[in-house]
């Protein structure tokens, strides 16, 4: 067997550094990552990277920070599999491999000038945080901004400090709910769908951006359509196992769509007829 070095292989990782970590909950850990020479990752909100730890493997992880942050980027990782468990052991200064960014993110050019309605369930806040912070950093380029956040319990809420800042901003309407409250919780209790009817919006110029667990979409979309938001103004991000990120390995395929290249962000109008998408 002969061997040749490939200098342009798509599987080559870039050696990135963990700049900062923070435990967010029992399951989720936050990482700030810098690329070699602090070069910008140059991603769009909604895109993902493949995080590599040799000996363990690779996992697709949503980028949690806005591209307006240029010297580093954030990841927020739930400990669920091999790679993510191993990632939780990483600390400041450790090296990790990064490929990407991959996929199509949120359609910023289309969203510009319009009202935005963000709906995040559970871990869905992670990719949405990238877009929300992007919008906040370029606030005057967008119309009204509504954010709805839902999570299981108050202590499973991610980015509490930031949520508090969003809550205080005069140019953002924020509301959140938990499935199950604890004694200290003074806010809403119940499913995120129950908050949608009460949101004041102009359906003609509102774009809804929804990210959450697979089960959430069906119900949220029904409420959005009831609010008369056109289907082509609803965007969502689909969770699949993007193993290679290159549109080949087949794991993230839904019908003829490869989530890793054609998504993970899709317009509802485009995927509503695709069997198995939602």
């Amino acid at each position: 067997m002969k061997k040749q070095i490939l200098n342009n292989s798509e599987y080559i990782i870039k050696k990135a550094k963990v700049v900062r970590t923070k435990k967010l909950t029992d399951l989720e850990k936050f990482f700030e990552i810098s690329m070699p020479n602090n070069e910008s990752l140059d991603h769009d909100p909604g895109q993902f990277v493949e995080v590599s730890l040799f000996g363990v493997g690779e996992a697709p992880i949503s980028i949690a920070s806005s591209p307006t942050m240029r010297n580093s980027f954030d990841l927020c990782v739930r400990r669920v599999g091999k790679v993510t468990s191993e990632m939780h052991k990483l600390e400041q200064g450790d090296e990790i491999g990064i490929r990407g960014p991959f996929g199509k993110g949120f359609p910023i050019r289309i969203l510009e000038g319009n009202d935005l309605f963000f709906i995040a369930g559970g871990l869905g806040i992670v990719p949405l945080r990238s877009l929300i912070n992007y919008v906040i950093d370029n606030r005057r380029d967008f119309g009204n901004v509504n954010i709805l956040l839902g999570c299981k319990t108050p202590d499973s809420m991610l980015f509490g400090d930031e949520v508090e800042i969003w809550q205080k901003r005069l140019d953002v309407n924020f509301n959140c709910t938990v499935d199950k409250a604890d004694p200290d919780w003074a806010g809403n209790v119940g499913l995120i769908t129950s908050l949608i009817p009460g949101v004041n919006l102009d359906p003609d110029r509102t774009f809804a951006i929804v990210v959450g667990p697979p089960i959430m979409y069906k119900f949220v979309i029904k409420e959005l359509i009831a609010k008369k938001i056109p289907e082509r103004q609803i965007y969502l991000s689909l969770e699949r196992h993007m193993k290679c990120g290159l549109g080949r390995c087949g794991h993230c395929q839904i019908e003829d769509i490869y989530c890793c290249q054609d998504g993970p962000v899709f317009c509802y109008d485009q995927i509503k007829k695709i069997r198995g998408a939602i």
Binding site: K3, Q4, I5, L6, N7, S9, I12, I13, K15, F54
Partner: peptide, 18 residues
């Protein structure tokens, strides 16, 4: 696809065997 060496960080080279 890749031969790696993590003795000092995430070092690697991409290869093709043929």
């Amino acid at each position: 696809l890749i031969e790696y060496d993590t003795k000092e960080g995430q070092n690697m080279k991409a290869v093709v065997e043929y």
